[in-house]
């Protein structure tokens, strides 16, 4: 039994060490955000705790940097993108999970292949397309893109989940004479809710964190999401690290909170999506 106790202590120590190392970058950013500028520069070490705590950097980042507006924009973009991606991919997943048809595997292959490609491939054509269709620099443009771009992963994910539902449910309903869309809406969708929540949380953080596509598809200050706002800020306050640190933490707060609340779904989402292939 002593051996067990020793091993437990060892586990604790090692785990604590790992967590300390893992948290170090966070702590450094937090320290940086609350130090006044002169302390930051005179102290010669970002890892040292602040001598005094100054919270006004957060306020400045919030007001002077227009972070409020950026936040709202991110919400306007993220919410419909997530809902749209979930809905549209559930249609595709339904077809691919339940029906046998010639192109089934090929279509699945296309969806998954698309989700793994280097996204840089899409940059130029997507930009040109948005411009030509007139949805460049609109919420609609970026929302439609996010939905489409996430379809690959969402479809793959939902289809795999649907595959785990016993086939007999589907077949019984068909024999009872239920229409295909009714089966989708009334029978399959309610069963998929756990998967949808997991996927939704995951997609929420991904789309919330998007930077590159907003950079390419949005130009107006009034429509920029939080990530883009943060880099605009970096350009403005290059040497004022406290403000940038405060803004970075503000930008991180929502995904972290969402993750903490819906942790279970989040991790389920990641693992079901990848492992249960």
């Amino acid at each position: 039994m002593r051996h067990r106790k020793f091993s437990l202590i060892f586990t604790y120590m090692l785990a604590t060490l790992i967590v300390i190392i893992w948290m170090f970058p966070f702590v450094v950013s937090l320290f940086t955000a609350v130090k006044p500028l002169d302390e930051l520069m005179s102290q010669k070490g970002l890892w040292l705790p602040p001598k005094s705590v100054h919270l006004e950097n957060f306020k400045r980042a919030w007001t002077e940097a227009n972070m409020k507006r950026y936040f709202l924009n991110t919400l306007i973009i993220t919410a419909p993108s997530v809902l749209g991606a979930l809905f549209i991919s559930s249609l595709a997943a339904f077809a691919l999970a339940w029906y046998e048809f010639k192109l089934n595997k090929l279509i699945l292959f296309i969806f998954v292949g698309g989700m793994l490609i280097p996204f840089q491939m899409l940059l130029i054509p997507v930009y040109r397309f948005s411009v030509n269709v007139g949805i460049y620099d609109t919420y609609l443009g970026i929302i439609l893109f996010h939905i489409s771009f996430q379809l690959g992963f969402c479809t793959f994910f939902l289809r795999n989940f649907m595959k785990t539902i016993p086939r007999s449910i589907f077949e019984a309903a068909l024999i009872d004479g239920a229409g295909h869309f009714t089966i989708y809406r009334k029978i399959v969708m309610p069963l998929v809710v756990p998967a949808l929540s997991a996927l939704g949380i995951l997609e929420f953080t991904w789309i919330w964190n998007d930077y590159l596509w907003s950079l390419v598809l949005i130009q107006s200050d009034m429509k920029k999401p939080v990530t883009l706002g943060l880099t605009t800020l970096q350009g403005q306050w290059v040497s004022d690290w406290s403000i940038i640190a405060a803004a970075a933490l503000i930008a991180a707060v929502v995904p972290i909170t969402v993750f903490l609340i819906f942790q279970r779904y989040f991790i389920e989402g990641l693992t079901v999506g990848a492992v249960k292939g």
Binding site: M23, T32, I244, A251, A252, P255, F259
Partner: peptide, 30 residues
């Protein structure tokens, strides 16, 4: 413990990049 180790997974690369620029900065970096 799991939650804390997992936390960086939720961050945007913009934020990660920014955080690490303070870690790696040659003169004052953490």
């Amino acid at each position: 413990y799991k939650t804390l180790v997992f936390l960086p997974m939720t961050l945007s690369f913009v934020v990660i990049g920014q955080i690490w620029s303070w870690m790696l900065e040659p003169r004052y970096g953490a």
